[in-house]
Design a protein around this nucleic acid. Structure first.
Lengths: 148, 148
DNA sequence: GAAGTGGTGGGGAAATGTGGGAAAATTTAG
DNA sequence: CTAAATTTTCCCACATTTCCCCACCACTTC
């Protein structure tokens, strides 16, 4: 399971060096094969390839005519890109994905359990601001009875 | 299974070069035989021929008198066109289909599981905007319990 | 201080996307 | 029915992009 925030930078070619402490695990778990895709929160998601497959399966089986479902399929499956770590442990983030998440040079990689999130540093800081005191509204019902 | 966006351009003759990473799979799976048809979302759908057949079967067996069903049959079956990849991995998109989807020179090919979607680049970007935060309304019920 | 690990940048070769042109086939006019 | 013209299909060639590999710099560790 991944956790923690790492400040990183994208190089001029759009390459992202995965932090060394994850490389061993990623190589043994998925031979460095990762899926990068778009998230509704305007960041990118990075999954080890085996962890992504069942999610894509579920999405594809929602063969609904509901336009909101179609939109979600387009966002997640449509933007998913297969990448492989190079010898230096770097992955290439494609221009459309970089543009989608508004990534500049300074980015932040955030461990989130089975996946990572990749944010532009500035937008990550805003995100943290919003997390304070549930600024977007009240507490969602699914958190009833939840305590830290 | 296909995934990911690819920015492409239609040449002056209306030809579309399938990305090289799909060509091997398409040649072995269907000898380069594809079906291009219209989608209700004003984009085009591209199926490997074997994947299309059962869909057309099901549509034809909906011998309903519901005018919405008839319309859907007309759209999908009526516009379906057989195409074959040439030696350079290109397919020809017929003028009526290009006009239907409003395709200019800059287009986007989007992998969606067993099929592709083909969008004019501008309209694809609008589509992605709409997918963010379910702008079209709340969350569809079939997504209950779904998590990324 | 030296050696190893981790982050960064750059260059060259191969594969890919794109355009143009020639040949073949089909259609239309004479 | 013949011939010409237009459309379609196939093939080749160029220019760009992408990928892979190597080298350097900084920092940590022994």
């Amino acid at each position: 399971m991944f956790r923690g925030v790492t400040q990183l930078s994208l190089d001029a070619k759009g390459r992202l060096a995965m932090p060394a402490r994850y490389r061993g695990g990623l190589m043994s778990f998925c031979e460095g094969r990762l899926i990068v895709t778009a998230d509704p929160s305007k960041c990118l998601l990075i999954y080890p390839q085996p962890a992504w497959e069942p999610i894509e399966q579920k999405l594809n089986n929602l063969s609904s005519f509901d336009p909101r479902t179609r939109s979600l399929q387009r966002l997640l499956v449509g933007n998913a890109s297969d990448v492989e770590m190079d010898a230096a442990g770097r992955i290439l983030v494609s221009p459309p994905l970089r543009q989608f998440a508004g990534l500049s040079k300074e980015v932040v990689l955030v461990g989130q359990g089975a996946k990572f999130e990749l944010w532009d540093e500035e937008q990550w800081n805003l995100q943290i601001e919003n997390a304070l005191a549930f600024k977007d509204g009240g507490m969602p019902p699914e958190l009833d009875g939840f305590s830290l």
